[in-house]
Design a protein around this nucleic acid. Sequence first.
DNA 1: CTGAAAGCGCTTACAG
DNA 2: CTGAAAGCGCTTACAG
Lengths: 343, 343
Amino acid sequence: MRGKGKATSFDIAYRAGVSQPTVSRALRGSPTVNEQTRQRILQIAHELNYKVDKNASNLRNQQSGTLALLFFEDPTQDDSLINPFFLSMLGSLTRACAVQGYDLLISFQQLSSNWHVEYEDSKKADGLILLGYGDYLEYVSRLELLVEQGTHFVRWGVVLPGQPGVTIGCDNFQGGRDMTRHLLEQGRGNIAFIGHASEHYPEFLERYKGYSESLRNAGVPVQPGLQIDAFTTERAGYDAVNALIERGISFDALFCASDLIAIGAMRALVDRGVRVPQDVAVAGFDDIPIASFTNPSLTTVQQDTKAAATFLVESLLALIQDEPVQSHTIPAKLMIRQSTRST
Amino acid sequence: MRGKGKATSFDIAYRAGVSQPTVSRALRGSPTVNEQTRQRILQIAHELNYKVDKNASNLRNQQSGTLALLFFEDPTQDDSLINPFFLSMLGSLTRACAVQGYDLLISFQQLSSNWHVEYEDSKKADGLILLGYGDYLEYVSRLELLVEQGTHFVRWGVVLPGQPGVTIGCDNFQGGRDMTRHLLEQGRGNIAFIGHASEHYPEFLERYKGYSESLRNAGVPVQPGLQIDAFTTERAGYDAVNALIERGISFDALFCASDLIAIGAMRALVDRGVRVPQDVAVAGFDDIPIASFTNPSLTTVQQDTKAAATFLVESLLALIQDEPVQSHTIPAKLMIRQSTRST
DNA sequence: CTGAAAGCGCTTACAG
DNA sequence: CTGAAAGCGCTTACAG
């Protein structure tokens, strides 16, 4: 049935005894095609295992039916260190795209590369989804450039006033606040915060601000010495806890800015014979799949990746259709497990 | 500088005072273009922020410059349960594609869908990379169909004789054998195997066969009661250990067919007050990033995802160029950590 | 070294 | 309801 090349709409037209444009119309569900004719065409298309050539239709339509996910990371990061949270996002995004009939092109970018000019221009994608970690202050200027260029994009991050483009994010502040309140309720008075708390990492900063607010509300002083920088890796969490202990800071709870940090932190505690949660409660952020299977299971803040992906994709498609789109914050949800049980 | 639409090669030709084909040649590095002319064209292209329209060039070239990663899974799987091992593979694949100048289109497929006919036909991808888990016997017939159709594809899995298509896989047998020998050397005599051991899941089966061989070599009888089915999730590992204990089977080591299973298994042991590794040694397979941060750190078998991705992509590109390609097995590497320390 | 021409496979006004 | 025509932006023989 199939010759050397794949069947084209001309092949179908020939067999159906109609013109090629009629085939195109029938296949695209145009209401102007006679129902019998359409049925015949669909039948033949099926027999020939015909698929519309996307390159041709996209060229003609000046679009691609594809969204590009640009996952960017610091150059220092290793492939295998990708935060499982982003994997969940990736899975959810792929599904959200499929629901809308779009393909997802994925590209891992170093922050150093010029990802911000590559994609839409080459017409491979109708819009960009930006996801990842790295120094916000370094890439915010690129966001401005994207806006200037008229590139369609959405990003996952913290919604800030005056920010270029559309951002979808979880309510990091609320998550940080709720978690800290929970720790206080469990009778913990010396809560350390492990993670960066600067404008370079706005998500972590928001979590820290939520933490600070809850402390203040409870009349507990916010001690700068209880905060220690860490990137979102197990290694960083491990090292941070050791550094904290070596500084001679005493604490009875660790609020870690991510689950990976928390897992590394728990490990450091255990290695020093500190019991979790009896001696020190540990909490994370993200609710990665492994969080309920650590030992003890990890109390954390859930970011709803399914909702996030749906918002990201729908917002991007709206942008592509020149509809007005607002940044949006998704509520965070406390997941209380064993690692913060009362003493 | 830029009007309503993006710049095309005609815009550049106009400004450079040459014909459009010359622009195309200059941009593609044809040696027949005058060097001065080329420089002028490159300069103008840069000024106009020109990018070749991939839809047009792909249509003309009858190719896409894109590889599609079809990640398939059982319908029961949840987005968030994707094995971190596949994330590592994904990261490595993306990089391997980038090295070759290809984009990677990613698609999550249910085993039930007809992923095997969608991609190459619609010219969105020049070839397919198949990755995932699920019942091998269910999809092997689809592989045959792919071969029949002349679809270019490679898959990650177990290399078996007479198998359709090209397969790249890790040496699961060797990994299983080495790990079991290690456990025996640590003085463990009652090693349970947690994971499916049937032809439906060839990777697990190979690991089980390696396990069996090491036992036999050591004169230890292979007891069917010491094997218990489990999919590759923490939950399955957790449940399997409980089932094993409730069956009244005694064991002093668990060789888990994946790290996720091992993590769930360790959790189940701890919940019952069994000490790891003092009472029971636990080993996994995959060496996912978290393996070195579990408590105790997890002894496991490393699959080299960077090598795997390189083989997969290079093999696929060779297939696309109609070069002969062989299936290939990559050595597995023992990673000994705390969870299997001698008692 | 360069240009005029053809064509990749589709979609959509336009005409009937 | 359907067809003839144009054109999306490129690449590559072919001719000079």
